[in-house]
C-alpha cells in the first residue's frame, strides 16, 4: 500500500511537468486553432536562457522572470515570422513549419550551449518530505511545481472567462471575421495568445529543469505525452490538459512501478486510442472545434 501511495505521489509531480507543457499547447490551440510542435523547443531554449542567468547571478526568481519574458518574445517571433504568413493559406503547412522551427531551435541550442545535459539547481529543497517515520516521494520543490501549475490554470481560466482580453482572444480564435466585425483587434489577440503560450511553456521548462536535466533534446518525449494529454483533455480545455497531464504522469508511474517501464508508451497509446474511440473530441472538448 505504501508502494501504491509512493507511485501516486511520484506520478503527481511527474504529471505536473506534462501538464504544464500541455497547457502551453492548449493556449496556442485556443489562440490560433493549431498545434505548435515547436512548443517544447521554445521551452527548452528559454530554459537554457534561464540557466545562463541563474549560473551568472545565482538568482532563480530573476532567471524565471527572464525566461518568461524570453518565452513570450520567442512565441511572438515564431508567430510573426512563421505562423502568420502561412496560417491562413495552409494550416498543415503551418504545422510543418513549427517542426522546422523545432529542429532549428534544437540545433541552435546545441550550437550555443553544447549537447551535453546540464543541471539546474532548484530554488527550494528537493528532498522528499519526512512524515510518519518515512520519506515520501514529494518534496517542497514538487509542492512548488504543483502549486504553480494550479495557480497557472486558475489564473488562465480567469483570464479567459472573466477578462475582456481573454474573451476577445477566444472570439478571435473561434471566428476571426465575426470578432473583427465586433471591434476586436484580432491580430493583437493572436499575438497575445502566442505570447501567453510561450510564457507558460517557459515557466514549464524552468520548473521541469531542476527535477531533470536540460539538453537540446531532453523535452522531446514530453511533446508526445503533453500532446497526448491535451488531445485526451479536449485541446480547448485548460482543465482537461492539466487533468490528463497529471493522469499521464500517474499512468507512467504506476506502469513503471508495477510492471516494466517499457510498457508505459504502449499503455499510453492504448488509453489514447480507447479514449478517442469513446470521446472523439476529447473528454472536455466541445463538438464545435474546427478541424486543422
Amino acid at each position: 500500500m505504501t508502494n501504491f501511495i509512493d507511485y501516486l505521489l511520484g506520478g503527481f509531480s511527474n504529471g505536473a511537468v506534462i501538464a504544464l507543457m500541455a497547457l502551453a499547447l492548449v493556449l496556442v490551440w485556443r489562440s490560433t486553432r493549431m498545434v505548435n510542435f515547436a512548443q517544447v523547443g521554445q521551452a527548452m531554449f528559454t530554459t537554457y536562457v534561464a540557466l545562463t542567468i541563474q549560473q551568472s547571478t545565482g538568482n532563480w526568481v530573476l532567471a524565471l522572470l527572464v525566461a518568461i519574458g524570453a518565452g513570450a518574445i520567442l512565441g511572438v517571433i515564431v508567430f510573426f515570422l512563421v505562423i502568420r504568413p502561412v496560417k491562413n493559406s495552409d494550416s498543415t503547412g503551418a504545422i510543418i513549419a513549427t517542426f522546422g522551427v523545432l529542429i532549428a531551435l534544437q540545433a541552435g541550442a546545441g550550437m550555443i550551449w553544447g549537447g551535453d545535459p546540464r543541471g539546474f539547481i532548484p530554488p527550494v529543497d528537493n528532498a522528499g518530505l519526512e512524515f510518519a517515520g518515512r520519506i515520501w516521494p514529494i518534496s517542497p520543490y514538487d509542492i512548488l511545481v504543483l502549486s504553480a501549475t494550479a495557480a497557472l490554470v486558475i489564473g488562465l481560466t480567469l483570464l479567459f472567462t472573466k477578462t475582456s482580453l481573454g474573451l476577445s482572444m477566444r472570439a478571435s480564435a473561434f471566428n476571426p471575421e465575426v470578432a473583427r466585425l465586433s471591434g476586436v483587434r484580432v491580430n493583437r489577440m493572436l499575438i497575445s495568445g502566442w505570447a501567453i503560450a510561450g510564457a507558460t511553456g517557459a515557466i514549464g521548462g524552468v520548473l521541469i529543469a531542476p527535477a531533470s536535466t536540460i539538453s537540446p533534446n531532453s523535452f522531446d518525449i514530453l511533446l508526445v505525452f503533453a500532446f497526448t494529454a491535451a488531445v485526451i483533455g479536449g485541446l480547448d480545455s485548460l482543465i482537461g490538459a492539466v487533468t490528463f497531464g497529471i493522469g499521464t504522469g500517474l499512468v507512467i508511474s504506476l506502469v513503471s512501478g508495477y510492471s516494466d517501464s517499457g510498457n508505459a508508451p504502449i499503455v499510453a497509446l492504448v488509453l489514447l486510442a480507447l479514449n478517442l474511440l469513446l470521446k472523439p473530441d476529447g473528454v472536455f472538448g466541445h463538438h464545435g472545434a474546427r478541424s486543422v
Binding site: D260, S261, A264
Partner: peptide
C-alpha cells in the same frame, strides 16, 4: 529489478526508486 524507457529520464524516477 526495475527499468526505465529511453527518454523517461526527463522526469524523476520516483516509481522505480520507491520500488
Amino acid at each position: 529489478t526495475t527499468s526505465y524507457f529511453s527518454g523517461q529520464q526527463v522526469a524523476p524516477f520516483s516509481a522505480q526508486v520507491s520500488k
